[in-house]
Each structure stands twice: as structure tokens, then as C-alpha cells.
């Protein structure tokens, strides 16, 4: 028994200790690489040590990044929101500037500045390996959590909505599951932070499962017109309904009775 215990402990140590050493070395290298990238691409607004930059008027130019964590960096940089192309009400999603490795380095550097959530592991948001029944229950629960917490800004099918002063809750359909998880965790831009105390990881996964279900489910009812609700429906009623019907009315009134086919041909 004792031998077994020793063997196990020793084996474990042998397996893990060198790896840890490697990891910390890698980590340091990564942070160093991240800092170099940071100084070039981020420091102008966020300060050379991520302490944030104030404008002359005292308002925030770039916020401090000392306690945002790796998850925030991964979300902002991997969705292309950061670096911003120009100041504005909100940083829009755009083509990303940094690739996966660079993003990882930046995240490692910013995470080293202070506290903050780490990049979530895949098992937190992935529904792989769940049985159909489990998944279905998860989707049902996620839908209700989604409707209670998300739709007020992001709309009933995640098509997005308006926020004050030119801000907006972006469309969240077709977004990578990891990024949805990170958004909930870090509350980017005008979004609230849905911490694990507020929406536990299992519920975050449920919301993501529901959004994926919306993406995968067919549109049972035809073209969804952007999934924006009654405004786009009203436009269709007027353009595709009344517009077309008035066109037909003009057509019917323009074609008056014909006495005979022959006469019609003669007239033409």
C-alpha cells in the first residue's frame, strides 16, 4: 500500500513537476511577447502598463486594464473589437488584427497585471458529449434564462438592439460560443457583467446551447426579415402586401373588357 502510494506520488511528481516548470517558463515568455505587442498596439490608449489614460478633461481615454483578466482580452481582441480603428460610441466587431497566438500573448500579459477572469475552458461552454435528452433540457432552460436576462437588449432572437447615445447591443447570432461566454463573464462595453454568482457556469452553458439551437433550427415560418419584430413585418405588409396589390389593381383596371380577341389584335 505504502509502496503503491509512493509510486503514485512519485509518478505524479515526475509527470507534473517538469511540465510546471516548462509552463512557467513558457508563461514568462508569453507575457514578454504580449507586453511587446501591448506597447505597440494598446499602450497608446491604455497606458504603457495598462494603467489607463485620462483625457485632459479628466474623462477616460482608454480604461485601465489592470483587473480585467485574460477573458476580456480574448473577447475584445479575438472578435476584432480591439484595437479600435477610431474612437466612437462603441467598438464594433470587425476583422481581427491579432492571430490566435498573439491574442494569447496579449491575454497573458494583461492577466499578469492583476486579477480578473481567465479564458474559459472548453468544457464550460461546449455541449459535446451530452445526450439528446440532456441537451434538450439544457436548451429549454437556456431559453428561459436568455429571455429573462438577455433579450431586453439583444432582442428575442439575438438580432441586437439599440442602446443610448449611439451604443447598441450587437447581434449575437453566429458568435463563437467561447466569446459569448466571455462576454457574459466580463461585460464588455455597455453590457452588464453576469458573474458566476449571478448566472452560474452551468446556466451560461444553457444560454449558449439555446443560441446554438436558434442557429441550427430551421425557420419554421419563412423569411425572418432580420428577426427584428414588428417593424420589419410592417414594412413587408406595406411593400410586399399593399404595394403588390395596388400594382394588381392598376393592372386589372388597365385591362378593360375585350369584345373579341380579333379586335384586340387589331388594336395592337
Amino acid at each position: 500500500m505504502l509502496v503503491c502510494g509512493l509510486l503514485l506520488t512519485g509518478g505524479l511528481y515526475a509527470a507534473l513537476a517538469p511540465a510546471q516548470a516548462d509552463t512557467s517558463q513558457d508563461e514568462a515568455a508569453l507575457i514578454k511577447e504580449g507586453r511587446e505587442l501591448f506597447l505597440v498596439g494598446c499602450a497608446f490608449c491604455h497606458g504603457q502598463n495598462g494603467e489607463g489614460v485620462l483625457t485632459q478633461g479628466g474623462s477616460q481615454y482608454g480604461p485601465p486594464l489592470t483587473d480585467v483578466g485574460a477573458a476580456a482580452v480574448d473577447f475584445q481582441v479575438a472578435t476584432g473589437r480591439m484595437p479600435m480603428a477610431q474612437p466612437g460610441a462603441q467598438a464594433p466587431r470587425k476583422e481581427r488584427v491579432y492571430d490566435d497566438e498573439e491574442t494569447e500573448a496579449l491575454a497573458a500579459y494583461v492577466a499578469s497585471l492583476g486579477t480578473g477572469p481567465a479564458i474559459p475552458d472548453k468544457e464550460l461552454y461546449s455541449t459535446e458529449g451530452m445526450s439528446d435528452k440532456e441537451l434538450e433540457e439544457l436548451v429549454v432552460r437556456g431559453g428561459q434564462i436568455f429571455l429573462a436576462n438577455c433579450t431586453a437588449c439583444h432582442n428575442f432572437e439575438g438580432s441586437g438592439g439599440a442602446m443610448p447615445r449611439g451604443g447598441y447591443a450587437p447581434k449575437i447570432r453566429g458568435v463563437d460560443s467561447k466569446h459569448i461566454y466571455e462576454a457574459m463573464l466580463t461585460g464588455p462595453q455597455s453590457m452588464d457583467t453576469f458573474s458566476d454568482g449571478n448566472i452560474p457556469p452551468e446556466d451560461k452553458k444553457a444560454v449558449i446551447a439555446y443560441l446554438n439551437e436558434l442557429d441550427e433550427a430551421p425557420s419554421y415560418s419563412g423569411f425572418t426579415l432580420g428577426g427584428l419584430g414588428p417593424v420589419s413585418e410592417g414594412i413587408i405588409a406595406w411593400v410586399g402586401g399593399i404595394g403588390v396589390l395596388v400594382g394588381f389593381a392598376v393592372w386589372i383596371a388597365a385591362h378593360t373588357t375585350r369584345s373579341s380577341k380579333k379586335k384586340d389584335e387589331a388594336a395592337a
Binding site: L147, T151, N155, F156, G229
Partner: peptide, 17 residues
């Protein structure tokens, strides 16, 4: 939309045209 629940609301809540 799901069933009505006074604690929920959706962006883009408009009446018919």
C-alpha cells in the same frame, strides 16, 4: 418570444404597424 412573463421583455418590442 416564449410565454408572457411580466419580468421579461425583448428589445424591438413594437406594436403592429
Amino acid at each position: 418570444f416564449g410565454p408572457y412573463d411580466p419580468s421579461k421583455v425583448t428589445a424591438g418590442s413594437q406594436p403592429d404597424w
